[in-house]
Design a binder for these strands. Sequence first.
RNA 1: GCGGCAUUAGCUCAGUCGGUAGAGCACUGGAUUGUGAUUCCAGGUGUCACCGGUUCGAUCCCGGUAUGUCGCCCCA
Length: 429
Amino acid sequence: MSQTLQSVRGMNDILPDEAEFWEIFEETVRSWLKCYGYRPIRMPIVEPTPLFKRAIGEVTDIVEKEMYSFEDSLNGEHLTLRPEGTAGCVRALIQHNLAAQHPRRLYYMGQMFRHERPQKGRYRQFHQVGVEAFGFAGPDIDAEMILMGARLWGDLGLDGIELQINSLGQPEERAQHRAALIAYFEQHVDMLDDDARRRLHTNPLRILDTKNPALQDLCANAPKLIDYLGPESLAHFEGVQRVLRDAGQAFTVNPRLVRGLDYYNLTVFEWVTDRLGAQGTVCAGGRYDGLVNQLGGKPTPACGFAMGVERLIALIQEAGGAPASPAPDVYLVHQGENASRLAFRVAEGLRDQGLNVLLHCGGGSFKSQMKKADASGATFAVVIGDDEAATGEAQLKALREEGVAQRKLKVDDLAEAIIGQLIDSDEEE
RNA sequence: GCGGCAUUAGCUCAGUCGGUAGAGCACUGGAUUGUGAUUCCAGGUGUCACCGGUUCGAUCCCGGUAUGUCGCCCCA
């Protein structure tokens, strides 16, 4: 295979068999969002680089080493392929003053770009469904968003996706905890491994995630974020949990659940699976009350989450949920000049009646055309040769039923006969 | 970005202790020149990922690159 004509590493073609599956997935997702009152929004894939630096945080992995950033050679602007959707969505909200009159429930789906090393469930171009709600301050919207996920897993036929939640508190609470945590680990710096020392001043919360058994006791006794939450933060977190309990939604409070983006506060949550190897998170999000104001908008409470489409589709396929690709109703076989001219008219006429028609193209013997008709999965073959063309007739042959004779019909009667038989066979099932 | 493993026909894979390769499926054509699925016959499948090294000779051994995969980091 040529080395030069390949897709960019980590950016994949989605071929017809899989693309059909994606379309079904997207239809399911859209009707699910609609039933919660979410409305679509579409933002550009490219945004000014400073937007992401300000929204996501300068010292995050995403901004520091994963963004596809470039300078527009025509005017020198610093641009970036979006690594996530929330920043652009908030930018659009502010730019068009969308939350001025009333709260907004918005969603989008599309490509995101992060320069990471690809592996299963992680790609450089990947797709997210993003769901954002603006103007709701209470814990009810957090809980609704979490419960939405549970419904979608059901709609998609998925089980075994578990819910983890946590509260990050408000920025000042988190800052106090962070300072206490750093102080604690600095006291015991001799016990830390290299990994933990590296994280000490970049992301001390991540130290608590260590897989090193020697650090377990040290981490267990570290200052806990929940002890730094004020009464309002605690009440908000309890409010979310109350709705989840009322709904019978099982969850785990994971005090080590932190998000990789700086803008989160209060509620954060993740839906995780153990069936996708190292990429266990299929959906994650939380509250980000400060972001709209931070990016220049009026203070607006906000909450949102994103789902990894590739990961969800991998899960569905692993669960055996691959649907059959749609077969045409009719494959139109024809041979001879007059027959071919009639065939075009017949095919369009059948399509006028709402039928899916595959018109044979490329010539070939009747035998080879019939083979293609069978391979297409079509319910019927319609055969037009010069004999039929001369009388304005066509042969109608049922390909999926035993012992049904081929019939010769006037071409004007074809659609009615085909639709009638399709309805009959539907009723039998 | 770091480490392990992998890469042979369109697909799934075998194989050569170093002498340029096979199977199944799929595909194409044929079995009374107007009829598919089953059957029978015939047929092409290919820079053995790419580049270089060792060798009389490399698909096989060695090195690098690309891509995939598993794990780490991180994340959807």
